[in-house]
Design a protein around this nucleic acid. Structure first.
Lengths: 219, 219
DNA sequence: ACTCAATTGTGCTGGAGAACATAATTTTTA
DNA sequence: TAAAAATTATGTTCTCCAGCACAATTGAGT
């Protein structure tokens, strides 16, 4: 259970284990919903999760992507709010649930654990602020290029060192990049014709990462 | 020194006081800069501060507004990063500086203090995520209406209960609302002609708050 | 295997808002 | 207090991208 786990002593580990519940989610299944009252910390054991926010009409904005080993769904509890985002499984996914009451109890006793959450939240906040500007100021090409790089940073490449280790629908790619599905498709095609990537269904290979980085920055 | 201060015992208060340095900033003066290495927690004693991020060209995006009694400039330190935002005084401002090393020391010893930062960061993260969607999905009118409401929430009204207790340039208003200065001016004029607000230089009176709320939500 | 639904792909049109220009007004500076 | 600079104001043009419409293809359900 990564970082978190390492910070606990034996007794703490026992309590956590006893209250840890595992649940499976199928592809596209919603894990938690905007407006719900947060009650559990979630730990992604296996699979991939998108954290998103409902916008106007059916346009969602993907806020953050979660990879195995990461925690999610705890922010709203700390802020004493209802969820402002939703979480859904991108592929078949296994999630561990831990009651927030227990998490809080342990944070109050274990200071390293408290600092772990401070660090994590501080990290997320920086990314969120950066993202706000990227999504509002960059043009379509820049936004999509950035998304592809983000996907790489989050999930890495497959053994061939070029294929993105995540298979998103064009719609999800659009929701991640703040554009319409049509434009995600179109721009993806353009990138392919410029030999920056290759596209085979949902499988995307990155050919010129540096050029994508340039487009993301200036395009 | 609000919340924070109340959480300290006598000895802690002494240490903090000894290391607390006060500095004044003139209107528009930069307090900290994107790319700088964070070293101090900042406490806004008097005045108003904008936290913003440089975008393409000279288009800045105002990320957050700080009011007296609030802390800022500490996130990057916790995330172990350089600043991704800048901070500047909107009006003549007085800021207290406290070395982050001392803050960290106290957090590690005082659990309530740790929890204070967890709560604050969690709050900010929720706002940032919400803001991302507002700025990307709403139209100009909705974005400006929302900004006016945000200004009210942050700084309140003057004694007349209608005049916003902050005087922003049209450019700042535009940077807050993710639009060009021209469009901020134009839309402000439109709102005035619709009797939603009155504008007298930088003095803005809110006449129909509920209508603005409607526009912010659906417009 | 067949049907229906969802996803992907392309073309076309219109509109929102950026970009630019220029003037009027206010503020700052010398 | 005159000159310069910054801010506010308004009109016009132009472009990016959303918003359709409609195929083609893929995938899911029975």
């Amino acid at each position: 259970m990564s970082d978190f786990w390492a910070l606990l002593d034996g007794e703490e580990k026992r309590v956590i284990s006893d209250n840890f519940q595992i649940q499976n989610f199928k592809k596209n299944e919603v894990i938690y919903n905007e407006g719900d009252t947060p009650s559990h910390l979630m730990f992604l054991i296996k699979g991939k999760v998108k954290v998103y926010k409902k916008g106007n009409g059916d346009r969602n904005q993907i806020i953050r992507l979660v990879r195995p080993g990461q925690y999610f769904g705890y922010r709203a509890y700390f802020a004493n709010e209802e969820y402002v985002t939703s979480g859904a499984a991108i592929e078949n996914t296994q999630v561990g649930f831990l009651p927030m009451s227990i998490v809080e109890e342990h944070i109050r006793r274990n200071n390293d654990l408290a600092f772990f959450f401070i660090r994590t939240l501080a990290n997320n906040l920086g990314q969120s602020d950066t993202r706000t500007v990227n999504l509002t100021q960059k043009h379509i090409r820049g936004r999509l290029a950035e998304s592809l790089l983000v996907l790489h940073e989050n999930y890495g490449y497959e053994p061939d060192s070029t294929t993105l280790n995540i298979y998103l629908s064009r719609e999800d790619l659009a929701n991640l990049s703040n554009m319409t599905t049509s434009n995600a498709i179109r721009t993806l095609t353009t990138f392919a014709s410029e030999q920056l990537i290759t596209v085979d269904g949902r499988k995307i290979k990155i050919l010129k990462e540096d050029e994508l980085r340039r487009i993301s920055k200036y395009g």
